[in-house]
Amino acid sequence: MKTAQDLVMQAKAATQEVTLVDAEEAIRQADVLMDVREADEFAAGHLPGAILVPRGLLEFKLSSTPALSGRDLKVVLYCKTSGRAALAAQTMQSMGYLNVSSIAGGFDAWNAAGKAVVKPEQPAFE
């Protein structure tokens, strides 16, 4: 029986992962920067310009959002550490998307490198 880690390793072997050094250029060249974490993770901080499409809803959002339906879109994905993004990239490839990559190390590596992060202000109820 395969473990979650086995599936992630298999997905990483079958998809393109960009290094943290190359991530900013990949994002500049992308049509879409997609955060596949959960809504609470996204709200706590995300990469500038990212849209939220949780991995659990990925196939449904891609199928129902005309702006994301073009199979030739250049998409960069990320999650917390890169496992979910690799699985999402593999799923997108199986759906026919041609230009999908993920960021090695994910949000945690990006944040640890001191790169820009958007942290929406929460309303204060005082």
Rank of each mutant, 00 (worst) to 15 (best):
F125Q: 14
E41L: 00
A11K: 01
A67R: 07
P123T: 07
L47Y: 11
L57P: 14
A23K: 13
K12W: 05
G45Y: 04
T15F: 09
V53C: 13
E25H: 13
G106Y: 04
L20C: 10
A109N: 10
Y78Q: 04
A116K: 13
G56R: 03
V100T: 08
L57M: 14
V117Q: 05
Y97W: 04
P66C: 06
L57C: 12
A39M: 03
A23T: 09
L98R: 15
L47M: 14
Q10G: 05
S94K: 14
G83L: 01
K115Q: 05
A13D: 02
G56Y: 05
Q122W: 07
V76L: 02
S101A: 13
V36H: 02
Y97P: 13
D108T: 15
K2M: 00
Q16D: 09
F107T: 03
E59C: 03
E59H: 07
M34C: 14
A112E: 15
K119C: 10
L58W: 11
Q122Y: 06
S64H: 13
P123N: 09
G114E: 03
V117A: 10
A26T: 01
D40I: 02
M9C: 07
T3F: 05
L33W: 07
E38D: 12
M34E: 06
V8R: 09
R55L: 04
G106T: 05
G45I: 00
G105S: 06
P54K: 01
H46D: 02
I103C: 02
A113L: 06
N99T: 04
E17W: 01
W110N: 11
Q5K: 11
A89W: 01
T91A: 13
V8F: 10
C79L: 06
E121T: 12
D72G: 09
L77E: 02
A26G: 11
T15E: 02
Q93W: 01
V53P: 14
A44G: 15
S82D: 12
I27G: 14
V117W: 03
L87C: 08
A88W: 04
Q16P: 08
E38K: 11
G49M: 02
A113E: 07
E59D: 11
